[in-house]
Amino acid sequence: MEFVLLGFTDIPQFQWFLFGIFLVIYMIILLGNGVIILITRVDAILQTPMYFFLRNFSFLEICYVSITLPRMLMDLWTQKGTISLFTCATQMCFFLILGTTECFLLAVMAYDRCVAICDPLHYPLVMCPEVRIRLVVASWISAVPVQIGQTCQIFSLPFCGSNTINHFFCDIPPLLKLACGDIFVNEMVVYIFGILFVTVPFLLILGFYIRIISTILKLPANTGWTKAFSTCSSHITVVLLFYGSATVTYLKPKSNQHEGIDKMISLFYTILTPMVNPIIYSLRNKDVRKISFLLTVN
């Protein structure tokens, strides 16, 4: 009826240190993404499709990290990692839904940049408010029934023997290691959904950026190269951080070795990427830097 999340119990002497570090990280994530939501909402200069998607992405990051980090902080504080079967399933379901939403939303943001650079004259028409809202809503709800079904499938497996999950949250790979019997079908479903929801959006992003680069290279060297690349550099950095770590976790061969490394990789796309996103967008975007400075001064 319950599992035990080991978390970082293999280094008990650092439990309170880790609690402090992750608490500070959580505050940075909430503050950084919250500031982006605020300034892109209230400032008239930032009422463009790009900042509309960025605002939604920042809100998504707050939701995404709140699925795992508060629970991990509680486990570090209480020195206990027990979690009920229902809570574990709920955490996994929301984590998968929000993770898939992030993949789709990153693809939508790449499409936005592609239209803005490759077809600027039609950009206001293509990215009208109705289209923007539909793209965001589709990103949020497309994977809901699929991931609910996948969660139900995994938790319908028989779990016998150990109930210890060598992870800091309920994720698919460590849970499948506890299942009894033949889990080949379940593993294939994980790979198929991984390819569908991770690889396909990544290929779309890659295709959009190939078109962007080919368009930029046709421009004279002194007409907008720097500006065009600067509008994309933040998004590219976030894509590489998120997709790189997520791909290693979900599409790598199953192994019982180096589980500590798997946890470290998971930290990248669950905690560190949401933390650096506001920093990346603030440092790379002069409009966000300018408005943030004015809000600070005022």
Rank of each mutant, 00 (worst) to 15 (best):
M1V: 14
M1R: 14
L5D: 03
G7K: 00
P12H: 03
Q13R: 11
W16G: 05
F19R: 13
F22V: 07
F22G: 01
I25T: 03
M27A: 15
I29W: 02
L30N: 10
V35H: 01
I37W: 11
L38W: 12
A44F: 09
T48V: 05
P49K: 09
P49M: 09
F57K: 00
F59A: 12
F59G: 12
E61M: 13
C63A: 10
V65G: 01
S66H: 11
S66F: 13
I67T: 14
L69R: 02
R71T: 09
M72P: 00
M74S: 12
K80W: 11
I83P: 01
I83T: 07
S84N: 15
T87Y: 11
C88K: 04
T90W: 09
Q91P: 03
F94M: 12
L96P: 00
G99F: 07
G99E: 01
L105Q: 07
A107R: 00
V108E: 06
V108D: 03
M109W: 02
A110F: 00
Y111S: 08
Y111I: 04
D112F: 08
D112H: 10
R113G: 00
I117P: 01
I117Q: 04
C118D: 02
P120Q: 04
P120C: 05
H122G: 02
P124M: 03
P124N: 05
C128N: 14
V131L: 06
R132P: 02
I133N: 10
V136G: 00
A138H: 11
W140M: 11
V144E: 04
G149C: 09
T151Q: 04
C152V: 12
C152K: 12
Q153C: 10
I154R: 00
F155R: 05
S156I: 04
G161R: 13
I165S: 10
K177W: 06
K177F: 12
A179D: 06
G181K: 10
D182M: 09
D182N: 15
V185L: 14
E187D: 09
M188R: 13
V190G: 02
Y191S: 09
L196I: 13
F202D: 01
L204M: 10
L204S: 10
I210H: 04
R211P: 00
I212D: 01
T215G: 04
L219F: 15
N222I: 08
T223R: 15
G224Q: 06
G224I: 08
T226F: 14
A228C: 14
A228R: 15
S230D: 12
S233M: 11
H235G: 02
I236G: 00
I236Y: 08
T237C: 15
F242K: 03
F242Y: 12
G244Y: 07
G244N: 11
A246T: 09
A246G: 00
V248I: 15
K252Q: 09
S255V: 03
N256E: 14
H258P: 01
G260A: 08
D262M: 09
F268K: 03
T270I: 11
T273H: 03
M275P: 02
I280P: 04
I280E: 03
S282P: 00
L283G: 12
R284P: 01
R289V: 05
R289N: 05
K290V: 10
F293D: 14
L294G: 03
N298W: 13
N298D: 15
